[in-house]
Amino acid sequence: MNITLHVWRQKDANDPGAMEVYTAKDVSADSSFLEMLDMVNEDLAQKGIDPIHFDHDCREGICGMCSLVINGVPHGPQAATTACQLHMRSFKDGDAIYIEPFRARAFPVLKDTIVDRTAFDRIMQAGGFISVNTGGAPDANAIPIPKTAADKAMDAAACIGCGACVAACKNGSAMLFVGAKVTQFANLPQGQSEKAARAKAMVAQMDLEGFGNCSNYSECEAVCPKEIKVEVIARMNREFLGATVKSSS
């Protein structure tokens, strides 16, 4: 099939950037979206044009590196699928596809579709952990954890930190990402002693990074490749409120 691509090109963080049009010819329906871009890039490189830069690594939907907004939707039209797992059979011959970077003030564009997501790392550094040093941990079975709690924690822990939630949110809010981590630890006995502090510290850092506020659009949930639910946001709100009440009393 032949596809027309409208791609955001931006030389570096200071370049204003613009959409450019390319054509992808003879694309196999079995190729992945990124492989289609590989083909286009091979062509561009032959012509001496700097290829379209895009972040990608594992190409199996788990590392969270890929970060394309395809036709206005982070990771593209297929639900619960990262851009790297999207295949061209989701499109048809003659389609025009818009490819843009994740848009949020907290995710500045570095080049083309590559954005800087280190804000997420800094949120994690503020409190996304349980404070245990290596060594000295008690036997793994010393604290039984009900299966339901472990499963809930796992549901939240499935987050791959891709940032699609932020990109999809009309407010550029990171609540789903932060809520997922807060929820994971809030469900586990190991996470209890620090849970109030964790919620406050992570939220403070999130705000500091310039992410927007949650308007409960649920766009984040709709595009999350790991199907993290907005209830993690409610859980974080609860933890945050609890932490505030506790520290003021």
Binding site: W8, V69, V73, R103, R105, K170, G212, S215, N216, A222
Partner: peptide
């Protein structure tokens, strides 16, 4: 704050789930 947090809009604007009321 929300407007500031998302200064650049998408050229291709799409909404997947958010209700009109929201």
């Amino acid at each position: 704050e929300n407007l500031k947090a998302r200064p650049v809009r998408y050229k291709f604007n799409e909404t997947v789930k958010a209700s009109i009321s929201s």
